[in-house]
Design a protein around this nucleic acid. Structure first.
Lengths: 200, 200
DNA sequence: TCCATAACGAAACGTTCCGTTTCGTTATCA
DNA sequence: TGATAACGAAACGGAACGTTTCGTTATGGA
């Protein structure tokens, strides 16, 4: 099991007129556990509240939406993956893609990500948070791979957005259809196309 | 407005021991209208039932899940778009993409599609329906563009899946982030990369 | 030192939607 | 003509929503 199953049954009362870090940690851990075990279907504020031994008002006080909570759960683990450009964009992309897919499969983060994308289809604020907070931060590294390649003259600078969109969409397609295994074989060819030098 | 707002207040009773086509039509029209006006957030069986003037059991009798209903609403309009290969894959892809995005923006189908993808993240049966029924049928035409190009020798046959995945993901990324407008400019460059001939 | 302030968990609120069951009605089809 | 089946309406118990009320705990400024 990839998550702590049993929660500390210790009661957490108020520690005064300030946020209780233990409650914050318990809620994030509970959210992570619920997502790991039941995915988006079981991810309700009630379920997280019960599992964390926390009151619902405590959750609503610090996270104004489910999307907020999802983003924080995701961000707590994503920091492990870094992408540093070498001199070969295609290889950089293949490496990063494999690392990302391993991260999505080996932690609850794949389900968390899918939940966030689903949430964004029904909640306009979740969509805004996805576009304005989540994606820019998460894509910073991979965007850097493209800008470095453009700086080297390997790809045209004006095609960065198009190539980045291709890269993002490729990953989204496989994770949203829960076909990361089947998609592994397509990674090298796809990344070669995305990283292709400008045609003469 | 792109959908009929007022429903026929005429009562539809049973027409005997067989399905009532008027009820089927009213339910599909109601689902379409709800999606057009409120998107996935307002798409509940209760809401569709109320709007259609139909009983919930009638909906559950003929559609075993929300995803089923979404697929049928989408399929009722998608038939309008066809893709016939010429001798230029890149141009075929650009044309088809623009037609698809116009269809997604000009009808409730964009919202329907987003709702279906969201539904697939919480309901395993919806995910199965998406992969095994919806996508194969919907992708038939665009897949034909790639196989025709491979038959001409313009692209390697073993890269069809990778290039198709790139194409699908590109579209999904923009529709799921509700950024079809902003993505228009990236279409030509992206399609050129997807359709690029094999490197020597 | 005292007390206004604020976070805490628990419980309950009314609302909405879930999927199902019951009911009386309607009309087919064997 | 009668068994069969779909129809709309209404109601069911259960779950989750987001909020409010409550008593408790402990801080931090006066």
């Amino acid at each position: 099991m990839q998550t702590a199953k049993a929660e500390a049954p210790a009661r957490r009362a108020s520690i005064g007129a300030r946020r209780n870090p233990a409650s914050q940690a318990a809620i994030l851990a509970a959210a992570r556990a619920v997502l790991a075990e039941e995915g988006y279907a079981g991810f309700s504020i009630d379920a997280v509240s019960r599992r964390a031994g926390a009151g619902k008002p405590t959750i609503y006080r610090w996270w104004k939406s489910r999307a907020d909570l999802l983003i924080e759960v995701y961000a707590a683990e994503k920091a492990l993956i870094r992408a540093v450009p070498t001199d070969d964009l295609a290889r950089d992309l293949v490496d990063h893609t494999k690392a990302l897919w391993g991260f999505w499969c080996g932690t609850p983060s794949g389900r968390t990500f899918r939940a966030l994308l689903a949430e964004a289809q029904s909640d306009p604020e979740a969509l805004a948070a996805l576009r304005e907070r989540f994606l820019p931060e998460r894509l910073q590294d991979v965007r850097g791979l493209f800008t470095a390649a453009a700086a080297r003259g390997d790809i045209p600078g004006e095609e960065i957005e198009a190539r980045l969109s291709l890269y993002i969409g490729f990953n989204w397609f496989y994770v949203l259809t829960d076909q990361l295994d089947a998609g592994l074989a397509s990674i090298p060819a796809a990344m070669r196309l995305i990283a292709a030098p400008a045609r003469p």
